[in-house]
Amino acid sequence: MTKGVQLVGDMPVGGWVDRVLPERLLPYARLMRLDRPIGWWLLLWPTWWSTALAADATTAGWPNPLLLVLFLIGAVAMRGAGCTYNDIVDREFDARVARTAQRPIPSGAVSVTQAKVFLVLQGLVGLAVLLSLNGFAIVVGLLSLPLVFAYPFMKRVTYWPQAWLGLTFTYGALVGWAAVRGDLDWAPLALYAGGLFWTLHYDTIYAHQDKEDDLIVGVKSSALALGRRTRPALLLFVTAFMGLTALAGLLAEVHWVFFPMLALPAGHLFWQVLTVDIDDGADCLAKFKSNRMTGWLLFAAIIAGTASPG
């Protein structure tokens, strides 16, 4: 953890958010997890991958920088909105667990009404980003809303809420391609399917931090479902992710250099599988956060495949 930063429950205190923002805004920054950027990175990457994969001769095979900036803004806003919505729905569960009891809503720092207003404001930012895209991309983006609204309830009904999160968090793989090409094709669909397995991988690792608390409050997760079978399951998830990503590159007809470069994100992911300690919450969190590097490595491979001549 960064020097000077302490944890109150699961919330970092003393970081840059505390130093920069006025005190009255801090509960809202914590509500949207502004001090924990890994969430919006994981939401952003499928969108950036797809934008890069769809790049064509009009940008010399490089991703459109304006779209990258727009998707960055949208990812921060919509990840914040998702966390706010999740905390509204889960406020009674959060109040019963020491790790989450000091979150803004259960602690009383933000009322439910204030949280709902804040949710709408963040949603409007995301909507503004979406409306800046072409008409087809707007429709594709709006079709993700049922997935978003249903997600917080999945852990009440299935041991695989991580799969539903995959459908939701990886949806940008469709939006990015649609924003560039104005259509959908098999390549972004393969990338979307691969991203589902990537989410299963990283969020199962993350869920192992929470398995004791999940048992206390009576919610479900893939960590509880898999138990000691987690490592072979992670191996399966990573293999499926990389295989479907390679298929996406093949369908998009990228340069051959893309395929050997896939060894970089694949190696990083297999390192996570082989070294993660599912009984060590700190290690699980570190491995989970390291998926930002997975994103960068795959992004570089895709750009190499689309921007290389020949």
Rank of each mutant, 00 (worst) to 15 (best):
P46L: 11
V148Y: 05
D185N: 13
N64Y: 01
G243M: 08
Y202M: 09
L72Y: 04
P106K: 13
A54N: 06
A81Q: 08
W256D: 01
G267P: 04
G15N: 06
P152T: 06
Y192V: 11
W160R: 02
L127F: 13
R36C: 03
L133G: 06
D87T: 13
A207C: 12
G243I: 09
D203M: 09
A54Q: 03
L250K: 08
A57H: 10
A304K: 04
L234C: 05
V13S: 07
L26R: 15
V5Q: 11
F259L: 08
F237Q: 06
G141R: 10
F258T: 08
A101I: 08
N64F: 00
T58G: 09
A307S: 14
L26M: 12
T59I: 01
L269N: 09
R91F: 05
H201K: 01
L66R: 11
L235P: 00
F149M: 15
L226N: 04
Q6K: 13
V20K: 14
K287I: 13
T245R: 01
L43F: 04
G141E: 05
I302T: 04
M293D: 13
Y206C: 12
R229W: 12
W40S: 12
L165R: 05
A163N: 03
A193H: 02
T51Y: 03
A223T: 08
L274F: 14
L26N: 04
H208T: 09
F71K: 11
R292H: 13
R96N: 02
L119V: 11
F270R: 14
K211I: 07
G82H: 10
L66S: 07
I205C: 03
L235I: 00
L269V: 03
N86F: 03
W40T: 10
C83Q: 03
W49L: 11
T306R: 15
V76M: 14
W271I: 00
L184D: 09
M242H: 15
G135W: 14
R103H: 11
I105L: 13
V129I: 13
M1V: 13
G15Q: 07
V140S: 06
S221E: 02
E212V: 12
T230V: 14
V17E: 03
Y85L: 15
F259I: 02
A115W: 08
G15L: 11
L68V: 14
